[in-house]
Amino acid sequence: MQNIILKMNKIFLKSFFLTIGFAFLYFPILTLIVYSFNDNKRVMVWKGFSFRWYGELFRNEQILEAFMISIKIASLSATFATLLGVMIGYSLVRIPKIPARPFFIFLSSSPLVMPEIILGLSLLLFFISSNHLIGFPSSKGQLTVLISHITFSVAFVAVIIQSRLSSYDKNIEEAAQDLGTLPNKIFWKITAPVILPSIISGWLLAFTLSLDDLVVASFTTGPGANTLPIVVFSKVRLGLSPEVNALSSMIMLFVVIAAVIFYFVNRSNVQK
């Protein structure tokens, strides 16, 4: 009897915490979605259901342009950061002789703990000085934002690759050599394909980091390089914006679709 009560208690506690926890996580997002259908310029006063703000959103050239810029910068930044991050991860695990190794470790890990505001400030000052000294970069813009995003994403990719490689069985590379693979082909034929899932998650993380970044981009941006967060921030800094509500719903929809696909692909993989 006592056991049953104890068990009931446990189940109750579990559902209590999970319900409260997930409600907390989803309540704000759902609020945004509900109000995105409000047919009123004053965001919080309900007037009726409509898709009006979605229409406005797709006609808002500023937001659309910023979205395209953000996607472009994020995919480029993720690609370069993944390349560099894989190199760092590989170097740290596999190459014993790195000149000033502790310094290399410091460089590749401290962006993780550096507040983005300091990172943004230092990069901006650097771009200004380097422009004074050698005329490069000629002006602030997409290039400077891209460089900055690569710089802070690299560390995150490197951590993922490093932890994957340190749990990686070196025997399979020896096996490949034993079966006749030349040493210069081992990385591309064996190592890279085996750690490919980690490379992909590194890329996705770098992509999100870039897409999500406001602070560093605000410091290093220039004409023609207003990313989506910069535009959104300028819209919501002082008040509310119905178009931003619609944008939130769109992003949410996109993420949920991606998550559902991921869930089912993953599940069918596991079931096999």
Partner: peptide
């Protein structure tokens, strides 16, 4: 989901 938008949600 966008970090900025999640903060904005609380403003709403």
């Amino acid at each position: 989901t966008s970090f900025l938008l999640r903060v904005y949600a609380w403003k709403v």
